[in-house]
Design a binder for these strands. Structure first.
Lengths: 192, 192
DNA sequence: AACGAAACCTACCGCTCTACAGGTAATGCG
DNA sequence: CGCATTACCTGTAGAGCGGTAGGTTTCGTT
């Protein structure tokens, strides 16, 4: 059982860490990253602020863990995807406002100077754009309306997804995010 | 000269205030609203933090002034506008990254709970969407592709503008914001 | 049972922030 | 000139922040 017990300890530790990350997601959603305090996150998991620093030695380290969590959870698009899977993704997002709020808040902050998530978002956009271009090419070939290429359309697709999220977060009753996204897809679907 | 002198005093005061607002715009662009300190703004206009509070009694009052400044400067779309004016607006924006950065950072923060700019952005979106719908109707009538109405297309137009700004701010060399926006407009221009 | 490491805690440091209180010098008006 | 207002300043209160130092308890391993 010795090995098993060792695993248990490691597993408990890993569970604690992901508990903390989940709490951090919530607090960031409510107050942004700069506005989030380690104390508030710690309180939510029944720790003192210093107890939390045992798991993540700095506030930035906690943010890194939050961003890594996202990378696992929210995969970058790949050519296997079809565009109706994108629509489902947006529908899925509409059921998880807290997560969307977290990353919309982080994205907004990230454009400020020296923000610790800036590089993350910049690189992520690069990956997501090229992934989206591949999805578009797999779906439509190069037959996009008006001679648009997948590479030129991908930034628009990404912009629509992000931009709709802000409108929806600020006024969910007035903005039908999944519907609007499907509307956008129909613009791409017609023969060019 | 008595009346004129009185005016001079009032004018000087108003100039000082707008100097402060301009500095606040810069600091918010660099650090966001929550990250911006009154001291940093004050320093930029050669005042102490307490001297700045003589003009704006609280930090929130300064933010309100910043948002009002924007309302004057960046008018809500009206039906007189044509869509190529929108394209010019995006081109103009691309020449003023600092302003875009300020309001992109504020928009991101505004989705967090109890943020003082939240109502402002929510109401602004409502106005802008209906303004955009009017612009679209004036330009295309109801002949938008795939039976889309101007009201359903307006949120997409707004989303593209906002979403492109984030991609562009994070990676200006990879994202041709005005070009991408024009690409989007061509999607609307073809017969449906 | 003994030991080392992991998982916390209390105490505290130094800094930054908004805002209030109260003073003073300059300015413009009657 | 005298007075009120404006335009600042210094001083400080009061709170919150991230992070360090160092202790103690719990726990798995040997």
């Amino acid at each position: 059982m010795s090995y098993g017990d060792a695993m248990n300890a490691r597993v408990r530790s890993a569970e604690r860490r992901s508990e903390i990350v989940r709490a951090a997601l919530e607090v960031i959603a409510e107050r942004g990253y700069r506005g989030a305090s380690l104390g508030a996150v710690a309180e939510r998991v029944g720790l003192t602020q210093q107890g939390l620093l045992h798991y993540f030695p700095t506030k930035d380290a906690l943010l890194v863990a939050v961003l890594e969590e996202r990378d696992q959870w929210d995969a970058v698009p790949n050519p296997q995807w079809r565009v109706d899977l994108l629509a489902s993704l947006v529908e899925y997002n509409a059921m998880r406002p807290a997560i969307i709020q977290t990353f919309s808040a982080l994205l907004g902050e990230s454009v400020t100077e020296g923000h610790p998530a800036r590089d993350y978002f910049a690189e992520r956009y690069t990956r997501v754009r090229s992934g989206m271009a591949a999805v578009l090419r797999a779906e439509y070939g190069d037959r996009l309306p008006n001679g648009l290429t997948p590479e030129r359309t991908a930034p628009l697709l990404v912009a629509v997804m992000d931009g709709l999220q802000y409108q929806w977060l600020l006024d969910p009753e007035s903005v039908d995010m999944p519907g609007a996204f499907r509307d956008f897809l129909t613009l791409l679907g017609e023969e060019g």
